[in-house]
C-alpha cells in the first residue's frame, strides 16, 4: 500500500510540474516523472509479497510467482517513453535555437 501511495504522489508531482512550470526542460522532467510513476504503478500491479521471480527451474517447483506480464508491458512502455522524451527534447533544442530561450511565456507566435 505504501508503494501505491508513493506512485500516486509521484503522478501528482509530475502533473504539477507539467501544468505550472514555464521552462521547457522542467516540463519535460515533469513528463519523465509522470511516466516513471505510471510505469512503477503498472509494475506494482503484478507484484506479490514474498513471491518468486517467474522463472520455472523444475517441473514441480513452487508455484508462487509474481505476474510477469506487467513487467513485459512496462518494458514496452519504457521504450515508448524513451521515444517521446527524445522527440520532446529535440523540439526543445530546436525551439531554443529559434528563440534563444526556454521560457514558454516568451514563445508566443500562435494565437487566435
Amino acid at each position: 500500500m505504501f508503494f501505491f501511495i508513493t506512485t500516486l504522489i509521484l503522478i501528482i508531482i509530475g502533473l504539477y510540474a507539467i501544468v505550472t512550470k514555464t521552462n521547457l526542460i522542467r516540463i519535460i522532467i515533469g513528463f519523465a516523472i509522470l511516466e516513471y510513476a505510471i510505469n512503477f504503478f503498472f509494475a506494482l500491479v503484478g507484484f506479490k509479497k514474498g513471491a518468486l521471480a517467474p522463472i520455472i527451474t523444475q517441473v514441480d517447483g513452487p508455484k508462487n510467482f509474481v505476474d510477469p506480464i506487467p513487467q513485459a508491458l512496462v518494458l514496452t512502455a519504457i521504450v515508448i517513453g524513451l521515444a517521446t522524451t527524445a522527440l520532446m527534447l529535440s523540439f526543445a533544442i530546436k525551439l531554443y535555437q529559434k528563440h534563444k530561450t526556454f521560457d514558454i511565456t516568451k514563445i508566443k507566435e500562435l494565437k487566435g
Binding site: I18, L87, M88, K94, I107
Partner: peptide
C-alpha cells in the same frame, strides 16, 4: 515547433 510542442504536451 511551438504547435508541435503544445500538441505533444
Amino acid at each position: 515547433l511551438e504547435a508541435a510542442f503544445k500538441y505533444m504536451v
